Amino acid sequence: MKYLKMMSPLVFLLMMNCAAQNTSKGFDKIAYEAQTRGSLVQITVEGNKLSYKTYQEEETKEISKEQLEELKKIVDELNLKGISDLKAPSEKRITDGALHAEFVIKVGDEEYKSSTFDAGNPPTELKKLEDFLYSLSDLKE
């Protein structure tokens, strides 16, 4: 009986720890930047604030709880450790035919930086994230 009393709290803590590991961490910050000579697009999401900047305009706005949850879901689907190894489907950025684009996603103390790609034509794994950020910012790709 004494053994059972000592083991019950341990089992409870172990179960709570496993449940906590299954919950989504989300992200602390997402930064998207696309640029080439004469063009710039920066989109940053931190907390519930989205800010975007081009050479023509700059704005910060609040995003809704639903939009933030959708963004977290999109990020959770990514293999963040592997985004630096993703291959771009096209190479127009090399000859200034497209903007050089990349993502930096911060989760806790870790920063995950994607490989560079043509803006508007990211690796398939990043397409949903790029499209969603553009839709939130009201910018045209």
Rank of each mutant, 00 (worst) to 15 (best):
Q21H: 09
Q56S: 14
L10I: 14
K128P: 04
G38L: 11
K113D: 01
I83L: 10
K61L: 15
M7Y: 04
E33C: 11
E130K: 01
Q56H: 08
N17E: 14
M6E: 15
T23A: 11
E66F: 05
Q21E: 15
V104N: 09
D109T: 10
V11F: 11
S24M: 12
E130Q: 11
L68I: 04
N22T: 05
G47F: 07
R93A: 02
A34D: 06
T95S: 14
K87A: 07
E125C: 07
I105A: 05
A98D: 02
V11T: 07
K65Y: 11
S8Y: 12
V11I: 14
D85T: 06
L10D: 03
T124H: 09
M16V: 11
L133A: 02
V11E: 06
L50Q: 00
Y134Q: 03
Q21C: 13
K65Q: 15
K73N: 10
M15G: 02
T60V: 13
N121W: 01
R93E: 03
R37P: 04
K2D: 13
S24Q: 14
E125A: 14
L129W: 02
M7T: 06
T124K: 15
E33K: 15
G82T: 00
E77Y: 00
K128L: 08
K92F: 05
K127G: 02
M1Q: 10
N22G: 11
L10Y: 09
I63G: 03
Y112E: 11
P9D: 01
S114P: 10
K73L: 08
N79L: 05
E66W: 05
V107F: 03
M16H: 06
L50M: 01
A98G: 02
G97R: 06
T23S: 13
S39E: 15
Y134W: 11
E130W: 00
G97Q: 11
D96A: 02
L139C: 05
Q42W: 03
E91L: 13
L139S: 01
Q42F: 06
M6V: 11
E130L: 02
Y134E: 06
I74D: 05
V104P: 00
L13I: 12
P123Y: 10
A19T: 07
Q21F: 12
L86M: 12
A31L: 15
N17Q: 14
S8W: 10
S90F: 00
E66I: 11
V107L: 08
D109M: 08
I74V: 10
K61D: 07
D138K: 13
E110R: 12
K81M: 00
K72P: 04
I30W: 07
I63S: 03
L99K: 09
K29I: 12
N17P: 01
C18S: 14
D109N: 13
D118S: 04
A34H: 05
E69V: 09
K127L: 08
R37K: 14
P123V: 10
S8C: 10
Y112W: 08
L86V: 03
M7R: 08
L139Q: 06
E59V: 03
T116D: 15
E58H: 09
K29T: 14
Y32S: 06
F12L: 15
E102D: 09
E57S: 15
A19H: 06
I63C: 05
L129Y: 02
L80Q: 01
E33P: 04
L129D: 01
L80E: 01
N121S: 15
I94P: 00
T95V: 14
K61T: 12
